[in-house]
């Protein structure tokens, strides 16, 4: 189920219908609308996608197709911190994978999951962030960390945990 009201004033549905109204219901508006939902909820809840399909007179299968095509959209809730470990060629040869493994272990991700149970971290790999000179590269939300080592990534997480009140 979707999170409740976004604020005391606006319900999620009012918000979504105003977003749709603002972008219009032509097919090319679908991606901008999905981007706003992704930004607001950090994922695309199924029932909101169904609503978007209804409001835009599109087939839900088409909306689902677009939502699953782009890496920027997620159908499962994502964490507060989205951590991308670059595994492009340059980062890979400079040992990105040990960083990735250390990170997963540090935030206790098991069974192929990519988001921690407390919804604090989402860990993903990407193919090249375009900063090969800094390899291996990790981004956390909009911050870029270069020449990361397994130890370094754990220190970075320690810092974040401290900020969050160390409840993990």
């Amino acid at each position: 189920m979707t999170q409740a009201a976004l604020s005391n004033e606006v319900s999620v549905l009012d918000w979504l219908s105003s977003v749709i109204e603002q972008h219009g219901t032509k097919p090319s508006s679908l991606i901008p609308i999905l981007q706003e939902v992704q930004k607001q909820h950090r994922y695309l809840p199924e029932e909101l996608l169904t609503y978007i399909a209804t409001a835009m007179n599109l087939s839900p299968a088409t909306v689902y197709g677009v939502a699953t095509f782009y890496a920027q959209f997620s159908l499962a809730p994502k964490g507060k911190y989205i951590i991308k470990v670059c595994d492009g060629t340059a980062c890979h040869v400079r040992k990105a994978m040990p960083v990735y493994e250390a990170l997963r272990k540090r935030v206790r991700l098991v069974d192929g999951k990519s988001t921690t149970d407390n919804k604090r971290y989402t860990v993903e790999t990407v193919s090249c962030l375009g900063a090969c000179g800094l390899a291996p590269v990790v981004t956390i939300n909009d911050r870029v960390y270069g020449q990361v080592t397994p130890d370094a990534i754990c220190l970075i997480i320690d810092e974040l945990e401290k900020e969050e009140g160390d409840q993990a």
Binding site: M1, T2, A4, A5, L13, E47, T50, P60
Partner: peptide, 11 residues
């Protein structure tokens, strides 16, 4: 048309 959950409007 499609089975699915309802959207919560308040908390």
């Amino acid at each position: 048309r499609i089975d699915g959950e309802a959207i919560s409007v308040n908390e």
